[in-house]
Computed example of a mutant assay.
Amino acid sequence: MSNFYVGIIDDEKQNINRIKRKGRQENFEFIEVPLLEDIEEMVQEVIMLNVKALLVDFKLSTTRPNIKYTGVDLLVKLEEYIENYPSFILTAFGDNAEQELIDVNKVYDKSQYFDDPTVLNRRIKRQAENFIQLVKKAELELIELKRVPSPTLKQQERIIELDSFIEKRISKKDALSLSIKTKFYQDKLDNLLAKTEKILEEVEKL
């Protein structure tokens, strides 16, 4: 049984089927992500499917000339939504992909992968598991801190930090800014201090 899913985006069905076969011995499962014409909708599809890593062909228009973006364009757009998301380019056009992509370590030769998938599958597995563990660890710490009845200022700062960290790895576009969250907790603290001062004033009058 697979521990998590890795999405495949390719316009050629035979490539998708070959990649699926290359992952049969792994503890993850490759699944096809439907290729959509609009890049924003494509990103939302990836997020909705909750795949833990992504393997994308560089040229997505070989059989789909209506697709105007490349695999690199998609990964750049995805990074706007999810920070440090495990993603890889699998292509026969390595030079072009490397020129467009800042992180050349994400680019892998398709023919080499089909000959021997060991190296890339190991990297996919490692990066996806690290990504999952980082988020899970942050979520557990956040849950424990939110159970504290009256968190200290330092604990409140840590809550904001963890909350922002998790949101950026789920969807940065939907995340509240750190300044807004900080103001929210500061307002709560100010209200608490004001109530305390009022109580002390009433006590002094007695």
Rank of each mutant, 00 (worst) to 15 (best):
E161V: 02
Q133F: 04
I124P: 00
A128C: 06
M42V: 00
V135G: 01
I166F: 09
E141W: 06
L55F: 08
F4K: 08
E197R: 13
I47Y: 11
S177A: 11
E37A: 10
L192C: 01
R18K: 13
E12P: 00
N3G: 12
F4H: 08
V51P: 07
F88S: 05
L49E: 13
N121Y: 14
S150D: 12
K181V: 04
M48R: 14
K59L: 09
R21L: 15
L176T: 07
D57F: 09
V33E: 10
D10Q: 04
N84C: 09
I170M: 11
L176M: 14
A128E: 02
K52H: 06
Q156G: 02
E32K: 12
P117V: 14
G94V: 13
R122Q: 12
I180L: 13
F184E: 05
D116H: 10
F184K: 08
A53Q: 05
G94D: 06
N66Y: 10
D73L: 06
S87Y: 01
R64W: 05
Q156D: 02
A194V: 04
F28R: 08
L189D: 12
E129S: 06
E197F: 12
R147T: 07
F165H: 03
S164H: 09
P151V: 11
D163R: 06
I180N: 09
D115G: 05
S171G: 07
E157V: 04
L75A: 01
Q127S: 06
K195D: 11
D57W: 12
I102C: 04
Y5P: 00
K168P: 02
F131N: 07
N50F: 02
Q155S: 03
R126K: 09
N96L: 15
S164D: 07
E40F: 04
V6Y: 00
S61L: 03
S179K: 15
P65E: 14
N17E: 15
K59I: 11
S150I: 08
G7R: 12
A128D: 02
S177M: 10
F88Y: 15
Q99Y: 15
D73G: 06
Y5L: 15
T196P: 00
A194W: 07
E157Y: 07
V135A: 05
A128M: 01
F30N: 00
E201H: 06
G23K: 02
E100P: 07
Y85A: 10
K198A: 14
V135Q: 06
K181T: 04
L78G: 08
K13C: 10
I16A: 08
N27T: 14
R18C: 04
Y108V: 00
F88P: 02
G94S: 07
D109L: 11
L78R: 09
N121C: 14
V6Q: 00
L54F: 13
Q156P: 00
L120H: 03
T91K: 00
D57H: 10
D10C: 03
E32R: 09
E144T: 05
D10S: 03
N27E: 15
K125E: 10
I9M: 12
K52G: 01
E32P: 04
E197C: 05
P117I: 14
L140A: 13
K59P: 01
R147F: 08
P151N: 11
T70E: 13
I124Q: 00
L35N: 01
Q99W: 14
Y69Q: 03
D73T: 07
I160L: 03
N50M: 06
E37D: 12
K183W: 11
T152P: 01
L75D: 01
E12G: 00
L60R: 04
N105Q: 10
E202S: 08
